[in-house]
Amino acid sequence: MVDVVSAAWLSERLDDVHVVDVRDGWEFDGIGHLPNAVSIPFDEFRSAEGDVGMLPGRDVWAELLSAAGISADDDIVAYDDTHGVFAARFIVTALLYGHDPAKLHLLDGDFSAWNREYETTTDSVEVPVTTYEVSDPSASPLVDFETVESALDDPGAVIVDTRDEAEFEEGHLPGAVNLDWRELVDDETRGLKPRDELDAILESGGITPDRRIVLYCNTARRISHTYVVLSHLGYDDIEFYEGSLTEWEARDGALVEG
């Protein structure tokens, strides 16, 4: 289970975990970053020419983490400055390439939230190069087109579209419910809403821990955040459609409007 950790939790463990900043390099260098953080910009681990969907490929991933001084048994905390959606994609990518989910953490909030109470720096960070070894996860949440298509007829499944309402109305999978990933985030704190609010939002869409949850968006970025949140909340039957609408439409999957 991947989890979401508070700024207070991280501030006490900065020397014990590997902190990854997925913002653009100019933000990391020019605006500042968390102490001891390394820069792995989002665009560097996002590729349409790698593995399935937008995954970068095993070799690219291994090279990125090796250069950042990260090993396969390290604890990682990722952050961005966009409520965690890009950092969540990093966390899910690590999970899909075999990193221990118990050692993967998303910072609750983002750089701006951290900067309100804690120190940032523009100092460069030198790390020893490691040899990161990619492996197959013991259990992968990835599902393919055929699995999602069959889930449309499964009464125990909830197909969750994490895009915004306008996108949803333009066309979505039959029977899908709309849960804009931003509904789970508090605009003021920039982190997750309180647990009781999250439960109420999820339950209103029939998204409960006893159901089979199938997530999709356009290119699997936004579902990464929702996946991390649901995992953090204790959901254990979550399916991650990496191909999302990009593949679904290319293969003439059924869509409905409204």
Rank of each mutant, 00 (worst) to 15 (best):
D161V: 07
V214E: 00
V143Y: 14
K103W: 04
G206I: 09
L152Q: 10
R222Y: 07
T131Q: 08
D108C: 04
I207D: 00
T208C: 00
D123P: 01
V185K: 00
D196I: 08
V127Q: 11
I201H: 01
F145W: 10
D199Q: 14
E149L: 08
K103A: 02
A176T: 10
E146K: 09
D123R: 13
V177G: 02
Y216I: 13
G191H: 09
D164N: 15
R222C: 04
P137S: 11
R222P: 00
N115H: 13
D123Y: 08
W181H: 12
S150Q: 15
L142V: 13
V125I: 13
F145P: 02
Y216A: 06
R182D: 05
Y132D: 02
I213D: 00
N178T: 07
V158F: 00
E167T: 09
E169P: 00
T219C: 02
H225M: 12
T219Y: 04
R163Y: 04
T122Q: 11
S150R: 15
V160C: 03
D186G: 05
V214D: 00
D144E: 13
N218G: 08
T219S: 06
V134T: 14
S112N: 12
E126H: 15
H225G: 06
D153R: 13
L198C: 11
S135C: 07
E133R: 11
L184K: 03
A176D: 05
R212F: 07
E169W: 06
S138E: 15
L202V: 09
D136V: 15
R190F: 13
C217Y: 05
R211W: 07
P128V: 11
T131L: 02
T131P: 00
D144Y: 08
G156W: 04
N115V: 04
P194T: 12
P137T: 13
P194I: 12
T120W: 07
R222S: 07
D136Q: 10
R211P: 03
F168G: 01
D180S: 12
I159A: 01
D144M: 10
H172F: 07
R116T: 14
G191S: 11
P137W: 08
L184S: 01
E146A: 11
E170M: 11
G191K: 08
N115C: 05
L107C: 01
S112P: 02
L104A: 02
D187L: 05
F111Y: 15
E149S: 07
D199R: 13
L198Q: 11
S224C: 03
V129K: 03
S124H: 10
V125E: 05
D144Q: 12
T122Y: 02
I201A: 05
V177Q: 10
D154V: 12
E197A: 14
L104R: 06
V134C: 02
